[in-house]
């Protein structure tokens, strides 16, 4: 079972001399893969960088740091960070409940966790807006308390929590399932309380998965558009998210502005992607070793 989760480098040790290719179809499949990838993804992405570079650094800097755009970074990144943090806590509790406890409707809950992946973002957006609008199911209780959710940054946060939840649950759940109970038994037999065993034994083993889930939820939330724009209210300087700024600039035919913000977002997501890959490799290594002991 553990071979499945070992990193590829361990599963297939590099041969000293060149191995002869046994299986056919290498050139056509790799050729098609590279062609399709370049045509649809790599070349179009390069277009953004070329376009933004063609206007000089000054125009780039001015467009990337205008006050309205800066305000949108603050909202997008701030709400995404906070949303991912909330999701780590509750995503962990849900993953733990699904693996370790029995309860009525468990199968249904497990299946519906993926709803944010399957539900189109526009549908999620209007549903959340209807719920949290002043006359909605939730809004009518929150409004008298002075809490405004729809059409404020708080609404953005709610949408980003919705969109990020499955990332945390689905990265933590399989690791938790694979965890050997022997380690907790050893901790208990050495006199650890349940809380100590959890904090000192279980939690360190889950850390890579929790961090990966956090990073995935965060990355998705920063770029999210559909579920946010309905509930955000989109007031300049207050509740405009960064992807919306790109659309706004495009609608004003400000291509320099749009591509500049896109470059900022792309660079950020590449860095995050590298980080996530590193985290996942770390997580696999850690689990591989844990399995062997």
């Amino acid at each position: 079972m553990n071979t499945a989760v070992l990193p590829a480098t361990q599963a297939a040790p590099a041969p000293a001399r060149k191995r002869r290719r046994v299986l056919p179809g290498f050139a056509p499949t790799l050729g098609f893969t590279l062609f399709y990838l370049s045509l649809l993804v790599l070349i179009p992405l390069c277009a953004v960088f070329l376009k933004s570079a063609s206007h000089g650094t000054e125009a780039f800097w001015a467009a990337a740091t205008s006050p309205r755009v800066l305000a949108s970074y603050r909202l997008s990144f701030g709400a995404a960070l906070l949303g991912a943090f909330i999701n780590v806590i509750f995503g962990f509790i849900l993953a733990w409940s699904l693996v370790r406890y029995d309860f009525f409707g468990k199968k249904l809950v497990d299946a519906l966790i993926d709803l944010p992946f399957a539900l189109p973002t526009a549908v999620a957006g209007i549903a959340l807006t209807a719920l949290y609008a002043p006359n909605g199911w939730m809004g009518q209780w929150l409004e008298p308390l002075g809490i405004k959710v729809a059409f404020t940054p708080l609404g953005v946060l709610i949408a980003l929590i919705f969109i990020g939840l499955p990332f945390v649950v689905r990265t933590v759940q399989p690791v938790l399932e694979d965890l050997d109970t022997e380690l907790e038994e050893a901790a208990a037999s050495l006199g650890a309380h349940r809380w100590q065993a959890f904090r000192l034994v279980v939690l360190p083993m889950l850390t890579p998965a929790l961090l990966t889930g956090f990073a995935l939820a965060f990355a998705r939330a920063v770029g999210e558009y559909g579920s946010v724009i309905f509930i955000a209210g989109n007031m300049p300087m207050v509740s405009e998210i960064t992807p919306l700024m790109i659309i706004t600039k495009l609608e004003q035919y400000d291509y320099v502005g749009a591509t500049t913000i896109a470059v900022v977002m792309l660079v950020f997501s590449f860095v995050l992607l590298l980080g996530i890959n590193g985290l996942q490799a770390w997580s696999l290594r850690r689990n591989g070793l844990d399995g062997k002991r």
């Binding site: 990355a219 770029g223 558009y225 559909g226 749009a258 997501s269 992607l273 996530i276």
Partner: peptide, 9 residues
């Protein structure tokens, strides 16, 4: 990891 809006752009 690319925002859908950037994908359209």
């Amino acid at each position: 990891s690319v925002s859908p809006v950037v994908a359209g752009l």
